[in-house]
Design a protein around this nucleic acid. Structure first.
Lengths: 221, 221, 221, 221
DNA sequence: CATGAATGAGTCTTCATTCAT
DNA sequence: GATGAATGAAGACTCATTCAT
């Protein structure tokens, strides 16, 4: 029934959704919906709750595996962020609902901050710090305020554009993935020029290696 | 009256907006709204039309001034993208409406693509190419597919987060601005190591110089 | 302008007619209609008034021309009644409006009685009396109460059916005209007492027996 | 509820009827009306449907009873046609609604033709043919085209006038009934050639002379 | 005379919510 | 638990009418 409700809210937004339609989608009578959820608003909250719960969970340990080189962790992070994940569409819809109804349901925004934004930033920051400590990344740059957000933004924005423009007209995942990988490889490579050449090569490698993205669940938006 | 309608739609979304409320905001009678716009949908389209018309216009010539060094053009572009512009709130609201109602009003998405997305990407691409031609940027990297989008995404995402999380909890403009400026400076600087040191310094400068952003109108999202 | 109003009322009835549409049909502004007629109701009355005025006028002298044989007068009367007259469509529409709006505008019914019904009956009655006096018609039958109405009904009903069923499916004017002419010729012809007596008695019986009508369902209209 | 709707439509016509009033008459809430009928138009159609269904049914076998003399059958037919029947008022109102709304609801006219007009004409024609075959009626006259319609018209018109003018001012049922009965008795009686021949010739002449109708204005309805 | 912008009461219609079964 | 008939407040939309120009 929550699935049915999610679809209805996704299709028409909160105000446009009809309880009758929810019941029909679920194949039950209107009254039964009210048997479980006292009101439309309660149903909406429950739907959001149910959608938001199972996200993340994993993906956090990725960043805490100290043995992996930072360049590999970064690679993995980008793979995850740009991956075409199962259930991604639902997450995009969720993102849209939060954007659309965030004003009326402040808890949505609060939840987004806690469950998505903070965690994602924390992960990105951990990867950057890891690289800085191991000397793989230029420390000053990698630990600069705002760098984690800059790191995450392109992949998220890619999904937003995909949602807004449709699959066909949005920028390709692979293109942005490769471009960002190359950009980061050159920028984060530490200091001196000799490292440069290597850094650049590595960057090229990463850029190429990035495309066959591993399919594991994270939260892009 | 379109202003009143915009506010109402912004506050409640399409389905949640009330024609009566629009009339009240505009200080006129309900009937008069219908005198000018035959239906709620027509009003919504007119509002969007009116909001979308005056955007852009300028900002396009920025990227076509061949005499300016590419690093300066890039600096200016970031300044614009991260600037706290007048009318920005309206544009964010617009963005939110397009995200929320894009399904029901495909023209909105279409307009966004043409009037915002394509233009913004074109400008970013022009700056990158300019730098590549002048030898200021690493040509292969600067002209890589998807780089323009990667360049634009952080500033836009910054606004999206600001919209979703509120002024207080969103990442600061200045922080992301500086981080991205530094990142780009290191990444785009062409080849050799000697340039490196200078490039880094320049990057640092740019990062600092970026914060006192010039206040001119563009369209971040 | 009255023409325009007539068309509008004819097309949509009183409640369904719109003042704006009247103005448009007339090619003037809404306000001008109100300049001449203070309200929709007043306009409707004026339209009816204007439509009802020019009817009749002639046709009354027909029946008072004493020199013409009654059979000829009757023939002329039927010719007139069944004739496909110019302006007949308007009269049918008028009839329909009176049927439809007679409840809300009692004056319409009143006018119909005075200006149409009574005059028509008077004319028919005059023709019948004329024939009775000249010995062309069987006096008892021709002057019987209700005979004038029976005489008029078929031609009127023919128009009503035409209006209800459309030109194609309604009974033909010529057919009913000929049938009624033949019927009246045989019935009204005087004399033939042997057959007469029986026929008359039977008729009288039938007439009397008719009143205690059996109560079973049929379809009057 | 259909009853309530019928009353409302009867009282104010289609456009003038209010759904609220229908609900009030039925003693239910407005919403319940919409629970059963999706729109005003659907309700109207349902009302008409329900009204039109139970009409007729019987009355058809009347004309197929071969053992009864045609004069008796004719007598019964007139009795039925002029009878003050229960539910007659509803039928008159129905007739009025069909006249008034027939343009907007073509199905009404179609139904009237099939369910009322054709059947009634068929019955009248059967009676006339029955009389012709048994030698009770003059065959040529009784089977003449249009005779059935001429036979039915006065009784129907009597109801129409009653509806338009009110009970008090309309011609009496009994009067028209008796007059028509007498008329038919004399006209349909077979034979009587002396008087007959002249009368018939005159009739034939009139019938033929009728067609080239003079075009002058009168008022049929 | 003529216009049409402006008004707002009134209608149709929707839909969240209740409740007897 | 499960149903769906019933409710009525609320919202989109209409249109007769007014009035400044």
């Amino acid at each position: 029934m929550l699935d049915a409700a999610f679809e209805e809210f996704a299709a028409h937004g909160y105000a446009g959704a009809k309880m009758t339609a929810v019941a029909q989608r679920a194949g039950v009578a209107k009254g039964l919906v009210y048997h479980y959820y006292p009101s439309k608003e309660a149903l909406f909250r429950a739907v959001m709750q149910a959608c938001l719960e199972p996200v993340f969970a994993e993906a956090e340990r990725e960043a805490t595996d100290e043995d992996v080189p930072a360049t590999v962790m970064l690679e993995r992070l980008l793979d995850l962020a740009y991956a075409e994940r199962e259930g991604q569409e639902r997450q995009c819809i969720l993102f849209r609902l939060i954007v659309a109804e965030g004003q009326r349901f402040p808890e949505l925004s609060a939840w987004y901050e806690e469950a998505v934004f903070r965690r994602a930033v924390a992960i990105a920051r951990a990867v950057l710090r890891h690289g800085a400590r191991r000397g793989e990344f230029d420390a000053a740059l990698a630990e600069q305020e705002g760098m984690a957000e800059v790191l995450l933004a392109p992949a998220i924005m890619n999904e937003v554009w995909r949602m807004m423009l449709g699959e066909g007209r949005a920028p390709s995942r692979a293109g942005m993935h490769a471009a960002q990988a190359a950009l980061l490889a050159r920028a984060l490579a530490p200091g001196g020029m000799d490292a440069r050449g290597g850094g650049r090569d590595a960057g090229g490698k990463e850029g190429n290696a990035a495309c066959p993205a591993t399919r594991r669940a994270t939260s892009a938006p």
